[in-house]
Amino acid sequence: MTSIRQEEITNRIAEVKLKRILELNTRLRDTLDRERIRASDASLLIIDYVQKTPDYIISDMWTLPTEENKFHQFKKIRSKKSEMKASGCCSIM
């Protein structure tokens, strides 16, 4: 009795195993069917994108006008304010 039960279990395990491998095979076939472009074409597309996109960190290719640089603008305002404080002048309206 127990041996029949055991056999059933091993059969079941084998079935699951088979199912797994068949699933893997379908997925491998999907991978084979996938459309691919050559690495050289992909490289050219990437190079094209990189060369065309403005990147202001690279200063010898792209320059950000200072009036568009929020960090510069803020620093300017702050230094103006501190200058006014330092000069000690105030206007009474």
Partner: peptide, 13 residues
């Protein structure tokens, strides 16, 4: 598919 690398393709840059 892997006929080149990005660095080779960008050699003229």
């Amino acid at each position: 598919i892997r006929d080149t690398t990005l660095v080779k393709a960008a050699s003229s840059i």
